[in-house]
């Protein structure tokens, strides 16, 4: 069994190969280079290094989002096309859960954060021991979400590279119940993605689409306009 894992949902690029239970190779880069340019070369080089041919792959795991719209689409397109081409199962894991796995073992909740501008973020809360979702992944006003988290009355470990942008706000709302993962533990790791995939069910490859967790601006405006009309 050879698993390929791909996470391009934010600026870091994470790929890994796991053979049975053995991590063969893991690569994470955080260079803000366009994933469209780098993701397939990373996969190709990693597989060449591990002397694994495309036909040797048996499972594909991909981070489904949320994150950058373009980012999640690149990973999803590559993963579903590879899985469909090679006729092997595809597994999708929340990009936030992949980040949460960095803190597994924490006694409390884990809150991965991806900044989504204008005071909003993609966030969720996971149980520190089991990684079971406690508050579902969502796109929220960060301050409101933090208040919701505080009401859980548990220590919370914050992770993800965007934590640094919001450290002050988190302190202000959460006080000393807030903990922060070390900077080297804030990047997504494709081996964690693969391990989480192993606990999940494969998806229908053709139906596989990113979990954007947010409708497009055009749709939001359209809905607003329709609502406006119906009130007239």
């Amino acid at each position: 069994m050879i698993y390929l894992g791909i996470d391009t949902s934010n600026s870091p690029l994470a790929v890994a190969l796991v053979k049975d239970e053995i991590v063969l190779i893991e690569e994470t880069t955080n260079l803000k280079i366009n994933h469209s340019l780098t993701a397939m070369p990373a996969v190709e080089e990693m597989m060449a290094k591990a002397k694994i041919a495309p036909a040797d792959l048996t499972h594909i795991a991909v981070a489904e989002g949320p994150g950058s719209y373009t980012g999640v689409r690149i990973g999803m397109t590559i993963a579903k096309t590879l899985a469909w081409s090679l006729k092997i199962p595809l597994y999708m894991v929340s990009s936030l859960k992949v980040l949460a796995a960095n803190g597994q073992g924490f006694n409390g909740l884990i809150c991965p954060i991806m900044d989504a501008r204008r005071g909003t973020a993609f966030v969720g809360a996971y149980d520190g021991a089991s990684l079971a979702p406690i508050i579902p992944d969502q796109h929220s006003d960060l301050k409101e979400f933090l208040e919701q988290l505080k009401a859980q009355n548990k220590p919370v470990l914050f992770t993800g590279i965007d934590v640094s942008i919001h450290e002050q706000l988190i302190h202000d709302v959460m006080g000393d119940t807030a903990f922060f993962s070390a900077p080297q533990n804030r990047l997504p790791r494709a081996v964690n993605l693969i391990m989480l995939a192993k606990e999940s069910e494969p998806v229908d490859v053709h139906q596989a689409i990113p979990e954007y967790r947010r409708i497009t601006e055009a749709e939001a405006n359209y809905i607003k306009a329709q609502e406006g009309q119906s009130h007239e």
């Binding site: 993701a39 397939m40 495309p54 690149i74 397109t77 590559i78 096309t81 590879l82 081409s85 090679l86």
Partner: peptide, 9 residues
Amino acid sequence: NAAKAFAFA
């Protein structure tokens, strides 16, 4: 990206 993945596979 689909073309690259298909060609690679």
